[in-house]
């Protein structure tokens, strides 16, 4: 059984399958995170949003959820780095003349870069809100203070844009990796994957854009 698990983690398709599963679960988290955040836009001086934030941080199950999330991230990142390093090693001598054959996209060729930007952004984001005790007194106010500054808005804009680009390749790719694709629905899968990436990216981008340009009065 253990040998079996080890094999699944060393085999190419095994590693990719774990990346796909962890990535898709993270996408599931993003969707719920976005849905909760959108309460910020309720026309009530941020009280629903603050109540939501308060309910989350006082939930006794939160540490378990956070542990699961952290594990998913670490697994995804560790496998991503390993896969990329192995892939680099698989071609020792690069081509002198470089040309694409028509399969790659900007998103697909920059998965490692967008992933790393997301990681840096994530650390900043956790420091800003999760680990800042002051933020928890008035979460809506903290969000407004952070994103109404040019620097804050730009940081969040770039982080979320990188996430959007990462996901625009990642979602369909993950299904393909798990074997869940077929000529009959490949084009639907590609469109749906990009569509969900755009929805997630635009949803999160709404915060820095709206708050920066309105000065934050929700």
């Amino acid at each position: 059984m253990l040998g079996h698990l080890k094999q699944a983690l060393s085999a190419s398709i095994g590693k990719k399958a774990w990346m796909a599963v962890s990535g898709l679960l993270l996408v599931g988290f993003l969707v719920t995170h976005l849905a909760g955040n959108l309460l910020y836009f309720a026309d009530d001086d941020g009280s629903i949003f603050n109540a939501y934030a308060e309910a989350l941080s006082s939930n006794p199950l939160l540490p378990i959820a956070e542990l699961i999330l952290a594990t998913l991230f670490l697994a995804h990142i560790a496998l991503g780095v390993r896969v990329s390093m192995e892939n680099r090693a698989a071609r020792e001598v690069p081509y002198h003349a470089k040309a694409a054959h028509g399969g790659r996209t900007t998103a697909s060729r920059s998965m490692m870069i967008t992933g790393l930007i997301v990681l840096i952004f994530l650390i900043i984001h956790i420091l800003d809100f999760r680990l800042d005790p002051k933020a928890h007194d008035d979460m809506a106010g903290a969000v407004q203070a952070k994103l109404s500054s040019g620097r804050g808005a730009l940081t969040y804009g770039v982080g979320v844009a990188a996430l959007g680009l990462h996901l625009s390749h990642a979602i369909a790719s993950a299904f393909h990796t798990l074997g869940l694709n077929h000529p009959k629905y490949d084009s639907i899968l590609q469109t749906a994957g990009r569509g969900l990436a755009v929805v997630i990216a635009l949803g999160f981008l709404a915060f820095p854009i709206y708050i920066y340009f309105s000065g934050g009065a929700a």
Partner: peptide, 29 residues
């Protein structure tokens, strides 16, 4: 010592026999 697939589909675009990457989904399955 081959690399890991990241579904970039360059293989399909370059294949002289135009084999589809859908075969890869089948193999993964």
């Amino acid at each position: 010592g081959f690399g890991n697939c990241t579904n970039e589909r360059e293989c399909e675009a370059a294949c002289p026999k135009e084999i589809s990457v859908m075969t890869i989904a089948q193999m993964n399955r």
